[in-house]
Nucleic acid binder design. Sequence first.
DNA 1: GCGAAACTGTCACATCCCTGTCACGGAACC
DNA 2: GGTTCCGTGACAGGGATGTGACAGTTTCGC
Lengths: 231, 231
Amino acid sequence: MMNGKLLLVEDDPALADLLKWHFEREDFHVAHTPDGDEALLLASETPPDIILLDWMIEGISGLEVCRRVRRAPETANVPIIMLTGRGEEADRVRGLETGADDYVTKPFSPRELVARVRAVLRRVRPALAGELLKFADLEMDIVSHKVKRAGKTIPLGPTEFRLLRHFLEHPGRVFSRARLLDSVWGRDRDIELRTVDVHIRRLRQAINIGGKPELIRTVRSAGYALDDDGG
Amino acid sequence: MMNGKLLLVEDDPALADLLKWHFEREDFHVAHTPDGDEALLLASETPPDIILLDWMIEGISGLEVCRRVRRAPETANVPIIMLTGRGEEADRVRGLETGADDYVTKPFSPRELVARVRAVLRRVRPALAGELLKFADLEMDIVSHKVKRAGKTIPLGPTEFRLLRHFLEHPGRVFSRARLLDSVWGRDRDIELRTVDVHIRRLRQAINIGGKPELIRTVRSAGYALDDDGG
DNA sequence: GCGAAACTGTCACATCCCTGTCACGGAACC
DNA sequence: GGTTCCGTGACAGGGATGTGACAGTTTCGC
């Protein structure tokens, strides 16, 4: 089982190899480049789940890479951890404010870096960290493929499972039907928009057993969202 | 204008005061307790947006607090940053694996901590890091499609939502009915000018619940504007 | 393999909320 | 006081969503 795709931008070959070895041992798929421009290219072609970015690299600066990754729509949400030799506070702050999610100063231990990557991934994509997804009294175990509400197991069809999973990974956020079709069904499939409604209904029916309050909010002319006061 | 609620668990009074001052200066609302058990109580009563947790505190350990916060459904998704004097790798890794989102070793600069908090919040709750449109005691979260006044959620129809959003994006500015029709309804639609009045009225009605002061100012023979002393 | 059960995507219909418009009355301006 | 502009209540129509049913397909147990 793969833990996630990781893009490593590091121009020190020794360090790059070391990190690559460690992450691959932890079942990450690692793409590596020493070059900032190539990193941007790779990132936009197949967006990774996380980017490890050295501050001092050849070509454009790490900070600039960070900025551009954030600006491109297809990579705007990819978390970034910056690696750096500088320990100066001003740089750290600048890195974090540019959109980096974390900041690790050399020398660091690979094990700690792996743990940090997991921590960030757990937050961004809980499923990739093999965790329990929770929201209110609802919980989903990705590994065992089980969903519970208030401790009671709920049977879900495959589509409803993926749909709920998507909502749990982005709680509170509103998704249009088209967006849901892309994310849950697949970008290439040609399916009627209204089909989403039907599956939302089936999902609601399943998780609201026993008169539990609604968790899926309908946002008229916008889509659906997971929400506490859902009705 | 508040940036978010922060729960500080720290038993060193001097450090606690320092951090509290810094975060309050940055418009965070800070709740503070030196005690682990009380922290859990506070967290479950009114879940904060983020928790700053000292590793070494009186009573139960920070690690245990972390674990329990994660286990409780109502706080399972609250991010945690651990503060610690220990620099040992094993502890860092253990903290991150227990569910902490970040880990800062003393001594650290308050400014850096603030930046880290912002980085984590940006990831967890985009709404708290700039996706939030605010004006007076009114706030609109674009992503979750929610509008609140004085903390209370307000239901809005699609058109009223777009209308309010337009005002919030250009606070204080006066827009003619024709201009609003262009921006909010669409340049191509052919709609009666006076229709704007009706939607302004509906919007006012919605956001002025409970005798709250008027926020939309009528500018005779010119149009409408978002304004503090709106009437 | 084979039959049963479960799942999926659509449709038609029902329902509800939203929407644009109007007419009337009141307020502001000169 | 007259004129212009704005606020308001009502209302019919339409658009968006909820719902039940159904045929085709896949999956599963045997």
